[in-house]
Write a protein that binds this DNA or RNA. Sequence first.
DNA 1: AGCACGATTAACT
DNA 2: GTTAATCGTGCTC
Length: 220
Amino acid sequence: METVYWRILPGHAIPKDGVSFTITFMISTRLSADFFDRSPIIVARELLGQRLVRVLDGQRLAGLITETEAYNGEEDLACHARAGLTRRTKIMYGLPGHTYVYFTYGMHWMLNFVTGPGNFPSAVLLRGVVAVEGLPVIASRRLNRPQAEWTDGPAKICQAFNIDNCLNGHWMCGSASQLWVEKEQPVADEQVAITARIGISRVPEPWRSKPWRFLAHLEP
DNA sequence: AGCACGATTAACT
DNA sequence: GTTAATCGTGCTC
């Protein structure tokens, strides 16, 4: 079951002297729990090009997803679930469609989506987006950085979109959410690169080399 | 209670 | 290319 939302497109001002005016809109569809209730490898690939939306002070911030990584169960020694069910990893054992937000390096937050199938502990890490809505707010949260470096890393996304502990375990598939993903056109295989995951150089093989990082080259 | 380390970033040389 | 920043987590004593 998918939920339908209306999105008013920017750039359509109401004329001061007019009696009638036009508002242009399109339908935007929020990704459902069914979307996330699959292997993190499938979800990571299919998230490319989709629209991450954050509501901050009633305003929409959004970015198109360009980079993801899959973390796949207790056996995957790069996945936090390698430690089994703990206070931190508990959320990954729960329902797909929740967020998993964690703190690392003493200063950075990381945003993940819990995936499936079912209660299998797995998640997709968001590593990159291209900002497309709320640019002034995003710029102010990434002060003195060039636009290309606003959201091209997992902790940068959380900085730009104001994501921290408060959004850990957040349900993205209901009407009350402040963070969710909206459906966009799929990205073709020709625009997708697949590599090993990064930042896990101490993880033993074969996990270190699993081709579970997905990058999209998005045409504007 | 103490320890080593981390799914990173920004600022260096 | 190197490295400091900075603290929660999970593990050992």
